[in-house]
Simulated scan of single mutants.
Amino acid sequence: MTDLGSEPGVGIATILGSTAGAGISLIYLLPRTCREAASRFLTGMSFGLIFGEPMGVWLTTKLGIEGELSGSKVILAGSAAASLCAWWVLGALAGVAGRYGKRQR
């Protein structure tokens, strides 16, 4: 994996990408309560901050544009993508757990 942490503005790009992804995830599927909105936003922010760099590197590799973007742009896109996907993946897992978790034996 490339070292993207040495470029200036990487922390800001991570925070902006995470915030953007979490915000977009709230717009796609509006929450029913304020508590649900806060939970979804914080989950998205956490995933974006943690998985932003690996997701950005994975995306640029899959798209074949590794050398064309700066490290800050890679992390910005990766943080937004990780943040956006976090709630959808967790929602799918919660649905599966809800369906199969209440089995009677």
Score class of each variant (00 low, 15 high):
88 W>T: 15
66 E>F: 01
46 S>W: 06
77 A>C: 08
22 A>S: 02
17 G>Y: 08
2 T>W: 13
86 A>M: 09
90 L>G: 09
26 L>N: 04
49 L>C: 12
63 L>P: 00
92 A>Q: 09
100 Y>R: 02
36 E>R: 13
84 L>Y: 12
93 L>M: 09
51 F>V: 07
102 K>Q: 12
34 C>G: 15
66 E>P: 02
55 M>G: 01
104 Q>Y: 13
57 V>M: 08
40 R>W: 03
25 S>L: 02
66 E>K: 14
28 Y>G: 11
14 T>F: 01
24 I>F: 02
28 Y>S: 14
81 A>Q: 04
83 S>L: 14
46 S>I: 07
71 G>A: 15
51 F>C: 10
25 S>Y: 05
73 K>G: 06
69 L>E: 03
27 I>P: 02
10 V>P: 02
20 A>P: 03
26 L>Q: 03
95 G>L: 13
66 E>R: 11
34 C>R: 15
17 G>K: 09
9 G>P: 00
104 Q>G: 11
101 G>E: 06
90 L>C: 13
8 P>L: 04
30 L>M: 10
99 R>L: 10
78 G>F: 01
88 W>V: 15
47 F>M: 03
44 G>K: 00
48 G>Y: 02
81 A>D: 06
100 Y>I: 01
6 S>P: 01
105 R>Y: 11
90 L>T: 14
83 S>Y: 14
96 V>A: 15
28 Y>V: 15
17 G>R: 08
67 G>N: 02
19 T>S: 12
92 A>V: 13
33 T>F: 02
8 P>I: 05
96 V>W: 12
62 K>G: 03
96 V>L: 15
41 F>H: 05
47 F>E: 00
3 D>S: 13
17 G>W: 09
105 R>F: 10
74 V>T: 05
85 C>K: 10
59 L>M: 15
30 L>Y: 07
72 S>M: 11
64 G>W: 09
92 A>E: 11
97 A>S: 12
20 A>E: 02
18 S>D: 02
57 V>Y: 04
37 A>F: 06
12 I>D: 08
17 G>H: 07
8 P>A: 10
60 T>K: 08
19 T>R: 03
29 L>I: 13
93 L>V: 07
16 L>Y: 04
